[in-house]
Amino acid sequence: MKLFINCKEARQICDRGQYEEISFMEKLSVKLHRSICSRCVKYSERNAKLTHLLKDSKCKHMTPECKKRIREELERELAKTPE
């Protein structure tokens, strides 16, 4: 792994870093790159914010029963529509 990386490599490492899949050398390379690149600092901040929002979201998945009921209601309404 090289110490000096370009923006594309920094973004890729940053993305993987959100899932804690980077090595010590990659962390060091990204920190060094971010010290000279304000665009990558902003990218990293937005990426971290998005990850945080997704982890803390209150989204819940619909149950299969709920999906089935919605599908049946849609089919009934579509059957009422004249062709």
Rank of each mutant, 00 (worst) to 15 (best):
L3P: 05
L3I: 12
F4C: 02
N6D: 15
C7Y: 03
C7Q: 14
C7V: 00
E9N: 11
A10R: 01
A10K: 03
R11F: 01
R11W: 04
Q12M: 06
I13A: 04
D15L: 15
R16V: 00
E21V: 00
E21N: 13
E21W: 05
S23L: 01
F24C: 04
F24A: 14
F24N: 13
E26V: 00
E26D: 04
E26C: 00
K27H: 11
K27L: 07
L28D: 09
V30D: 02
V30N: 05
K31M: 08
L32M: 09
L32D: 04
H33D: 09
R34M: 15
R34L: 12
S35V: 02
S35N: 10
I36S: 05
I36C: 06
I36T: 12
S38K: 13
Y43W: 07
R46L: 11
A48F: 06
K49T: 15
L50Y: 09
L50V: 10
H52D: 14
H52V: 01
L53I: 12
L54R: 13
L54V: 09
D56T: 15
K58N: 15
P64D: 15
C66W: 08
C66S: 12
K68T: 11
R69A: 09
I70H: 10
L74H: 08
R76Q: 12
L78C: 11
K80N: 13
